[in-house]
């Protein structure tokens, strides 16, 4: 193969290799040096981790619902929360600012503390495969 052909092939392939989905981009945002490994199983366990507050159990499903491909409902206001599963909602995870905001709020509400970078990555990995 001559150089030109190789170059054209490389050119054709490059967008495929570079174009990451929004959720993959967010995982990369939480792993800029590439030294963390995110795990969907760990993310799943964390998603279901329960905490008792004022006599009521809360976990992520309290508002997001059991089936993450379906819309959830805010436990208090009843406001519809669009599906979390990446397969059902490609609009999710497009803005890092929004992802950061909700991780901060919801980790504190659900677990009573902020999540670590590792945990956020694990949760994203879980949702990306759901």
């Amino acid at each position: 193969m001559n150089k030109l052909t190789l170059f054209i092939i490389a050119l054709l392939l490059s967008p495929v290799a570079v174009a990451a989905t929004p959720i993959e981009q967010r995982m990369a945002d939480y792993n800029p040096d590439g030294n963390l490994t995110f795990d969907a199983k760990r993310g799943e366990a964390l998603w279901h981790q329960q905490r008792m507050v004022d006599g009521k159990q809360r976990d992520c499903n309290t508002c997001h619902g059991k089936d993450l491909t379906q819309a959830g409902k805010h436990v208090k206001t009843g406001k519809v929360i669009e599906p979390m599963a990446y397969s059902a909602n490609k609009e999710r995870f497009t803005k890092l600012k929004k992802v950061k905001k909700w991780f901060k709020r919801n980790c504190k509400w659900t677990y009573g503390r902020e999540c670590t970078t590792q945990e956020k990555g694990d949760l994203l990995k879980y949702l990306s495969q759901y």
């Binding site: 208090k76 901060k104 709020r105 504190k108 509400w109």
Partner: peptide, 12 residues
């Protein structure tokens, strides 16, 4: 805002 009627509504 951190305890906004029982919800966390923190803003930057």
């Amino acid at each position: 805002l951190e305890d906004h009627f029982g919800d966390n509504a923190e803003l930057d």
